[in-house]
Amino acid sequence: MDTLANVIVSSILLGGVYFILSLGLNIILGVLDIVNFAHGALIILGAYSTFLINRALHWDPFILVLVDMVVVGVIGAVLYLCYLRFTVNSPLVRMFALIGFNSVVAALLLIFMGSDYRTVPIDLGTWYLGPIPIRVTQVIAFAFAIALGVITIVLLNRTKVGKAVKAVTDDRTSVQLAGINDRRLSLLAFTVGAGLAGAAGGIISTYVTFGSESGLAFAIIAFAIVIVGGLGDIWGGAVASLLVALVLTGVTVYLSSALTNTALFLLVLFVLLVRPRGILGRGRV
C-alpha cells in the first residue's frame, strides 16, 4: 500500500517536470510545425547554464531557472533567425540542421566543459507525507514547472499576442490575412519554446547528474509526451505528462526498469493506434 502511494506521489512530482519538459517542444511543433530535434540540446544548455552561473555567482538554482529561460531563449532566437527561417520549404534540410545543432552543442560542451558529469549542489532535505518521503527540491521543481506551465498557458490564452500564436497553430494563412506578421510570431514561438526547454534543463539540473549528451534521454520522454498528448495540444500534453510519469514509475517499480523504454514505446504506439489525435483527441494528425 505504501509502495503504491509512493509510486503515485513520485509520479505526480515527476509528471510536473515532464510537463515543462514537453511544453516547449509542443509549442514549437504546434505553431511552427517544426519537429524540434534540437530539443535535447536546448534542455542540456539550460542545465549547463544553471551549473555555470551557480558555480560562478552562487545564485540559487531555482532563480537560475528563469535565467536559463532567457539564455536558452536567446540561443533559440539566434538559431531561428540565422538558420531555421530559411528552411521553411525544406523540412529535410531543417531536420538535418536541428540534429546537427545537437551534435554541435554536444561537441562544444565536451570541448569547453570536459567530459565530467555535472551536478548542481542543492539539498533541502526531505518532507514526509505520512510514510511517504518527498524531497523538498523535487517539490520546488514540481512547483516551478507547474507555475511556468500555467503562466505560459495563461499568456497563450489570455493575451492578444498569445491568441495570435494559437491562431497560427490553427491557420497561418488566416493570420497573415488579418494583417498579423506571422514571421514574428514564429520567432516568438521558437524563442519561447527554446526558453521553456532551457527552463526544463535548469529544473532537471537540480536533481539529475548530467553530461554533454544527457539531453537525448529527456528529449525522448518529451517527444513521447507530445505524441501521447496530441500534437500541439497543451492540455493533452499535461495529461500525457502525468500518464508517462505514471507508466515509467509503475513499470520500474512493478516490472523492471529495463522495460521503461519499451513501455514508453508501446504507450506511444498504442495511443497512435487508438487515439491518433492524442489522449484528449484534440491534437493534429
Partner: peptide
C-alpha cells in the same frame, strides 16, 4: 534484483522498487 539502463532520468522509482 534490478537492472537499469545507464543514463537514468529519474532514480526515485528505482529506489522505491529496490527498497520495497
Amino acid at each position: 534484483e534490478e537492472y537499469f539502463a545507464p543514463g537514468l532520468t529519474d532514480a526515485n522509482s528505482l529506489a522505491i522498487k529496490v527498497l520495497a
